[in-house]
Amino acid sequence: MTSATTPADIEQRVPHWVDPESAPLSMRGVTKFFAPSTTALDDVSFAVEESSFTVLLGLSGSGKSTLLRLVNGLHLPTSGTVQVLGRDISATKGAALRSLRRDIGMVFQQFHLVGSMTALENVCAGALGSLRGPRFGLITYPKSVRQSALEQLERVGLADQRFQRADTLSGGQQQRVAVARALVQRPRILLADEPVASLDPESSDQIMTLISQIAKEDNLTVLCTLHQVNLAMEWGDRIIGLRQGQLVLDELTANLTTEETMEIYASVSGAGR
């Protein structure tokens, strides 16, 4: 297969086809506008295949974080539809939204753990969606929840640190705790917002390996935003490229070369990342 050599050629390619009806996650004509004058997303449409690892690639400001937050309802689209697991996210509220969120796990760039809580308690907090009523302190979580939390911590290799305060753990360890927290409710979709942007290369590698591994074990559909092209090429089955709110690339990684992908970004700024 001859590879196209210009960004325009790549952009001309027909986006990878996934049947939106059966896809766990799809967006159609989604536009997101923030007052007073920011259009974060402009008519974005795509669908994500089940059990795939899709990378949202883009520079900062390209709208990828906003897109991710549209998936679990932290933001609502200004126009267009976002379908998640068969439901229209803008129409889902309250208890239905909570129940939907139980099937979606999310990992953030800054981990977002409560520093003064132990690792185990942080993971337990991820199960709040399945519990009724507020919880305060490890003891208030039912034993079954604590067991599941411990299982997830074992999967990420931090069972020994379970009683350690989260703010005494290293960056990589904290992100692993965050991953465990995202998984404790056994979601079907995993969202990752720049999971490794705050980590050193070695921890980055660890985390991406971990996410990929877990995704395969649990048959998760992963949607991960990244700005590093090399990581995207290495871990993603499919790359969706965003540039200034618009979808410019939707292709299986197998059909792309690093150079081609980088060129898309080279055309935006002097240095593609």
Partner: peptide, 10 residues
Amino acid sequence: VQTALRANGA
């Protein structure tokens, strides 16, 4: 942190 917990359905 509150956003993270809300995202998990709390």
